[in-house]
Amino acid sequence: MTKRILIDNISSKWMLVCLSFFLLLPLAIGTGLVLKSEDLLTGHTLSSLIFSADWSPSEDKFGFWPFILSSLWVTIIALIISMPLCLLAAIYLSQFAPKWLLEFMRPVIDILAGIPSVVYGVWGVLVIVPLVGDTIAPFFNNESLGYSILAGALVLAVMSIPYILNMLLEVFRQVPVELGEASLSLGATKWETIKHVFIRKGATGILSAYGLGFSKALGETIAVMMVIGNVVQEPASVFDAGYPLPALIANNYGEMMSIPSYDSALMFGSLLLFVIILAINILFRYLIYKSEEK
């Protein structure tokens, strides 16, 4: 009997230890990154780090603006492309399509969301880069190698589709059927019902799906890095190469020990990414919980 109680005690303590580990993990990540960035922050002001475009680590100049700008460009354009596509596809699958198609597509989308990002990157190199370089850029009278902000954005848009679509399908699934019946019984057409009632009812959920999609896209590393060119510059057009934050971190970890403050700068980059993404996640997850509570 005592042995059983003892096991119960040890086991519940172990459970608590594991849980605490995860509760403390973000805190540890945050603290660790702050500590490592300290070197950089003592020599530079925060605003000069963020808003200066002067990047030459060997001269101790660390302006993150080109990277931040690239990250924002590529993520925002990606979202602009994928947002309407996801919404329309979700509307079709959940409202117009026969039931079996929705049932079939749900796991398929789920599986596609699990395809590794490096595979999307390969597809980007094979299809999107030539498409941008040979077709889209000349069409707009631009010269581009193809490795560009636009290529990154297109790949990112496609990658985010399964992720966002999944969440949108869930949003539409949670709208009560009776709400649709109420609108239809007033003589509305199916589309009017979707437009005026479902989209409005699901507004918080849709917004959150987009928000989480944005944060996911912002942190995406390898696929974007493969097609965006990785040139340190403030991109002037979507056909220019860019260099987003995650790519900066991923590309330079090898040599960062050789230049003073460089490792600190990369950790500062990680910290920026971490803080922004954490904030977005907290905000939109909170919105989702709020809307589910109702």
Partner: peptide, 11 residues
Amino acid sequence: GLVMQRPFPLP
């Protein structure tokens, strides 16, 4: 006009 079991006001 339809009145349902529970009220479903439009959002």
